[in-house]
């Protein structure tokens, strides 16, 4: 664990909590792309299946449970509890144009052709484009509430910090994961705008 990864995880956690609280307190999900939130829930589900198979640390396990819990809670709030405030007309990004190519790429380019590894690779590729429906929705509505921009900033910051974490780990541990790094660069670039 290094400072970049810890601050990255905390920034990610902050983004997830900011969004959840915003929807809960305002009792509205106006301006929020439900499709992006579904994609994030899918990212966490496919990435954290190893919760069932391996224990790395209390921090690792608890953060994974919190991420999965909050992402499904957010999806629930958007599509169930505050469904009336969901702006489906502007949330019109065709997510199948993301999921299908990402799924294909995960089968073609991965570290190991095993189910868990392919699902992990799928989640890495999907996470790098999961925000597109949200960015698309903001471009259509032409506006983003202040809290949504804070959410996007924290979310963008998290993967940018992970890039520094990977530089750190390569330099000090000789460790690097090209798939995570390339997807992380793509993800960070998408947030820059």
């Amino acid at each position: 664990m290094n400072v970049f990864r810890l601050t990255g995880d905390l920034s990610h956690l902050a983004a997830i909590i900011i969004l959840l609280l915003k929807i809960w307190k305002t009792r509205s999900c106006a301006g929020i792309s439900g499709k992006s939130q579904i994609l994030f829930a899918l990212v966490f589900t496919t990435r954290y299946l190893d919760l069932l198979t391996s224990f790395i640390s209390l921090y690792n396990t608890s953060m994974k449970v919190i991420y999965i819990g909050c992402s499904y809670a957010t999806v629930y709030l958007i599509y169930m509890k505050f469904r009336a405030t969901y702006d489906g007309n502007h949330d019109s990004f065709r997510v199948e144009f993301l999921v299908v190519p990402v799924g294909g790429l995960a089968v073609l380019i991965n570290h190991d052709f095993s189910p868990l590894e392919i699902l992990w690779t799928f989640s890495i590729y999907l996470e790098s484009v999961a925000i597109l429906p949200q960015l698309f929705m903001i471009s259509k509505t032409g506006e983003a509430e202040t809290i949504t921009t804070h959410y996007l900033f924290c979310l963008g910051l998290y993967r940018a910090l992970y890039l520094f974490n990977w530089i750190w780990r390569y330099y000090f541990e000789g460790f690097f994961d090209m798939i995570a790094i390339v997807a992380g660069v793509v993800q960070t670039v998408l947030y820059c705008d």
Partner: peptide, 10 residues
């Protein structure tokens, strides 16, 4: 950590 991927990361 397991083969390849950075599985100790979130």
């Amino acid at each position: 950590c397991p083969l390849g991927g950075s599985k100790d990361e979130l």
